[in-house]
Design a protein around this nucleic acid. Structure first.
Lengths: 113, 113
DNA sequence: CAAGAATGATACGGACCCGTAACGATTACC
DNA sequence: GGTAATCGTTACGGGTCCGTATCATTCTTG
């Protein structure tokens, strides 16, 4: 079990966010990064409706986030063949790499707090 | 020294961000939260130019972030009396409370990863 | 097979954010 | 004292995001 003091927590948050601002990639919004992590950490299948409910946001928010993150090759979409109303959100190589780098960033910064 | 495995890091990031999406307050951008933490964690004085340089962004970005976060009572501005071209960015009670809650959130979520 | 429900996408008006360029106010310099 | 440099702000055109309402497509149900 991890124990982070308030000062450690804020320092970690600051250092990682500063690194995110510094790097060249476009910043993701809080909703976008939450969506991305949900898709990669929780078991599929992921649909628009399911993700909207989990995050407590409207469906257009999810659709737009998928549009944006699709352009960045962080996630992809596919029609569900069993129920063609559904759209299945899938992981991509780009998304996996993005999160791998994020995890490294957090891990490295956490060592210095 | 803290050691966070990649999986722990991503789970922590996910859980905290999900809680931020769920709560009612407006989400801050990556640049805004970085600015806020810089003002609260680093020693004053903080000027627009100094903050812009530290974050690697343009001055209007800082001005706009201060406008937005000022309305939310997270930071305040004051003219520097010694050099009236400067604007000093100051902490507020609202900002301190916001970061206190954020630190709690991170600390609590980190216990479960 | 027809009517209704469910799903994701789109239209819309409004708000915010971006970077560049310009601006007014203040200070430093010669 | 007058010119140049510095500081923060504002103007601008363009882009993204928001929530609500609506839409086309697909499935379910009777």
């Amino acid at each position: 079990m991890l124990t982070l003091t308030p000062a450690q927590a804020l320092n970690l948050w600051h250092d990682v966010h500063l690194a995110l601002v510094h790097d060249a990639e476009p910043d993701l919004s809080v909703r976008q990064i939450t969506l991305l992590l949900t898709v990669y950490l929780e078991a599929p299948p992921h649909t628009v409706r399911h993700l909207a409910k989990k995050l407590g946001v409207s469906k257009p928010v999810v659709t737009r986030a998928l549009d944006t993150m699709g352009k960045l090759d962080l996630v992809s979409r596919r029609r569900d063949d069993k129920d063609r109303r559904n759209v299945l959100i899938q992981r991509t190589v780009g998304g996996a790499l993005y999160l791998e780098r994020l995890a490294d960033l957090i891990g490295n910064r956490s060592k210095s707090v």
